[in-house]
Design a binder for these strands. Structure first.
Lengths: 148, 148
DNA sequence: ATTACTGCAAAGCATTTGCAGACTG
DNA sequence: CAGTCTGCAAATGCTTTGCAGTAAT
């Protein structure tokens, strides 16, 4: 489902740095670390301090524009655009290469892995949401405009 | 499939601290952080420095006795016994509670979540293994006795 | 006895926070 | 113009590393 993207996400002030970060996230197939994003901005001629990138990413996550992904055995937090679909990755335990697998019901990814010449040793499924004790269960949309 | 457990994992020297860590991992349903393990040992009357626990966990992972799990939105690395089966968790985005789901093919976990009164907002599947360029593809068992 | 492991201290990274100046709406 | 965001620096928290003494085989 498309969001306000193409335009600009609702409730986020437009700055040069935020434009850059969103632009990079939109272009990237793979999740990126804050440092990656920072150096990509610099390579593109822009400037953005690392702490600023962190703050922007945190904001994007809070607004539901991006999601924070922890990829197995990586020390770094990775971020990617919230594309509102399943996120499935094959992560190489050696070089950390990430093979993204879109549209991926459980039963169909084996062929994809074989095509990618990837030997699966195991997998890990994480489900996120709210348990009974914590569910805000309101009519409000999740992630929208609540204080820090 | 059972390993040398109940006995002692092959190729690991027996020390008080390692016994403690393995014991705790065996008893725990959920993945644990190094600090958790450390304080559990102290609560049990033992002693184990945090750095020692980290070293032990690193060793266990290298030997295939434990696996390192990164649970969504957690800053800490978590470790658990390698039980040689799928690892599926539901993680509460608010309190970080972890609901483990054993024996969990994709199509069957929805009822489990409903029983646990868990509202799923999304999920994340990670697959680990070796890509074509990195596959050691030897006859050797994975994780067994290779240098750091 | 030899070799490896642990306690402890200090370093290393990724991430966060505080503050003053700069920028957006 | 008011409120927020960014640059920058310093702090924080998890994890790693170095070294000397201690324990396991």
């Amino acid at each position: 489902m498309e969001e306000a993207r193409g335009g600009w996400p609702e409730g986020i002030k437009r700055t040069k740095q935020r434009r850059s970060v969103l632009d990079i996230l939109e272009r990237s197939e793979n999740p990126l670390g804050a440092a990656d994003i920072c150096s990509m901005i610099e390579r593109g001629g822009g400037t953005a301090w690392l702490s600023t990138v962190y703050r922007i990413l945190e904001l994007f996550v809070k607004k539901g524009v991006a999601v924070k992904t922890s990829v197995m055995n990586s020390e770094m937090a990775l971020y990617e655009l919230n594309r509102f679909k399943h996120k499935h990755y094959a992560v190489c335990m050696s070089c950390r290469r990430i093979i993204p697998m879109d549209n991926c019901p459980m039963e169909s990814f084996i062929p994809v892995l074989e095509d990618a010449n990837f030997r699966m040793l195991g997998h890990n499924l994480e489900i996120f949401g709210y348990c009974g004790d914590c569910d805000p269960l309101s009519g409000r949309a999740i992630f929208r405009g609540d204080a820090k």
